[in-house]
């Protein structure tokens, strides 16, 4: 093998190893990229994680949107968790308050965390929460029960073809994560 071939081989190897590391990094870069992409497009039905300020503009009374509430508990959390209103009709821009009921049915203290998701996904960014129990951890002592409030409005910019919004909450046990 000649000297130049040897040098060329080293050069190519260096470049390729660089590509390998770059692509390994790219795999991880996909995580924040996906979040940004979903934030803009509402692709994965995630709603804003921060409270919206109350809307100043008027209410669009020409339209009515149906908002449905569903809830489920993730595996391993012994809570009762259900919306107290299953469905309401709202005008876009109109403020509404609904409540969810939760009860810790176990004999130990548990910290819960509700994670919201809106379907259809395109509507997620138009669902604005002014106050939501999902913004905070929800600690419940053994056998304790609580009514939790959700104050929201639907942005009047909501695309015309969306007539029904489904808001789904999944409740997770995050006790171990908080304590560690």
């Amino acid at each position: 093998m000649t000297q130049t071939t040897d040098q060329n081989i080293k050069k190519t190897v260096k470049k390729l190893v660089l590509v390998v590391f770059a692509m390994f990094g790219f795999g991880f870069a996909l995580v924040p990229l996906y979040d940004v992409f979903c934030d803009i497009t509402g692709l994965n039905g995630k709603t804003n994680t921060e409270a919206a300020t109350a809307l100043i503009d008027g209410v669009d009374e020409s339209r009515t949107v149906k908002v449905q509430f569903i809830s489920r508990t993730a595996q391993g959390i012994p809570w009762q968790f259900a919306p107290m209103t299953n469905e309401i009709s709202v005008h876009p821009g109109e403020m509404k308050l609904v409540k969810f009921y939760a009860k810790n049915e176990s004999t130990r203290d548990i910290i819960g965390q509700a994670v919201p998701s809106v379907s259809p996904g395109v509507a997620a960014v138009y669902f604005q929460k002014i106050e939501c129990f999902c913004f905070n951890h929800q600690p419940l002592k053994a056998q304790e029960e609580v009514e939790m409030a959700l104050q929201f409005y639907v942005d009047p910019e909501l695309p015309e073809d969306v007539k029904t919004l489904t808001l789904s909450y999944t409740l997770y046990d995050i006790t171990a994560k908080v304590e560690s």
């Binding site: 795999g27 995580v31 965390q113």
Partner: peptide, 24 residues
């Protein structure tokens, strides 16, 4: 390398408490 990244995320999600794929 992307596969290596994916399995690494699965590993840390399972054993080290990260939440790449965990909605909670």
């Amino acid at each position: 390398p992307v596969l290596a990244g994916t399995v690494t995320m699965v590993l840390t999600d399972t054993y080290f408490g990260t939440s790449f794929f965990d909605a909670a």
